[in-house]
Amino acid sequence: MGLMVRGILWFGMYLFLVLLPLITAVLSNPERIAPSPLVALGVGLGFVGYALMALEFALISRIKSAAAAFGEDALQQFHNTMGMVALGFLLAHPILLIISGYPAKCWLNPFASCANLATRTAALALYALILLVVTSILRKKLGIRYEVWYVLHGLFALFVVVASLVHIFILGRYTTTPAMRVVWLVYVVLVIGLVLYHRILVPILNWNKKWEVVENRVEPGDARTLVLKPVGHNGFSFEPGQFAWLKTGRTPFGLGQHPISMSSGGDVPPGGQVTFTVKNLGDWSGQEVPALKPGDTMWVEGPHGVFSMDREQAMGYVFVGGGIGITPLHSMCQTMAERGDPRPVVLFYGAHDEESLTLLEELQALTSRMNLTVVPVLSHPSEDWQGETGYVNVDIMKRHVPKQVKWFKFLICGPEQLMDAMEEVLPAVGIPPQNVLTERFDMV
């Protein structure tokens, strides 16, 4: 099945499940739902907001078929955006009902004397959802460790879904028909199924797929390269540019998982080693990764992602990497060199200074093995720097790309600012959007 068809089917299923409570309510017993349009509007917002919340679990559960159609980083962004939409709907839900005459004190204050289980669960679910979204948006500013946030995020989300369901069932107004009861159960089954799949089944399947650290070497740019080998299994081959979720610890059930791109070539023979390059961003990458030593166990779930030149055939490529976004691009160059691929590649590498150019030596070594031009662009170079300065922009690009660049594909990977700038600028200078493929490194 083509990716386009698969994408349409997945989105169709998503839309159907979002609208399912509305459709079922209309078909089953419309006269009992609401006495006025305003109340009906509030109820409708609650229905769709709840469905969106439940489906948030599906967007990040790494279902390979869906991820292949959209890209895991796109699904993650969609998850983030629709989470905020769900919050908006679920905030508007009580507001409209209160305007319609529902007593605010009973519905918003779980400790009020007039509050009951239905109102308390509604209020607590709403406050938990607000907390969930705020801690996600402001995690770094609030200084919350990723691992702590990851656990809290999952628990809060589960609480919101369960408390909302209790609210719906105790209220009883929208569970009077068997069809409506089935609809709410569909979401329960979906959420429980996805949590079990993601947190239990996938780790169990990975139980016999242990990996071992062979080497842990320091790289420029406060990064480390981990060379891993599969233990008792064949490991995997991957499309250059893809990533995997890494875990440290004795079992694959640890909660902290980290999306890290492979930096080695993708055509790995059975049992072959795979290399990951990890930038120190604090937390796990700054504390646990440097402490890893040869022989230590790691868990690798992958490969994932659609960011690969293998999926974007062209006469040549322009790669634009910033920061640790260079790792998937290095993997692509390495693979092309190993394959003897003669197509030209121009690689723009944005970094702060000479010291922060991770994998530059390896990339320069590849220029003798393939048709590769590496253009480092430094925003804060030393006085001795002879190369490009500032940020990767159209003028710098024009100086280095060949005339036939309109036949090339652009693959861009890096921090948010670089991605935003490139996604806006490239179409403006005549590079059609379909020639540009991006991957964001702000998934978590």
Partner: peptide, 30 residues
């Protein structure tokens, strides 16, 4: 997929959902 495309797509979907909710409200309260 582009970040911009995802944002636009989510925006369009949100509008579609609001329209669906309004239609729902009109049907069930009429």
């Amino acid at each position: 997929m582009h970040h911009v495309i995802v944002k636009r797509f989510a925006g369009l979907l949100t509008i579609l959902l609001i329209v669906a909710i309004v239609v729902f409200a009109l049907i069930v309260s009429s």
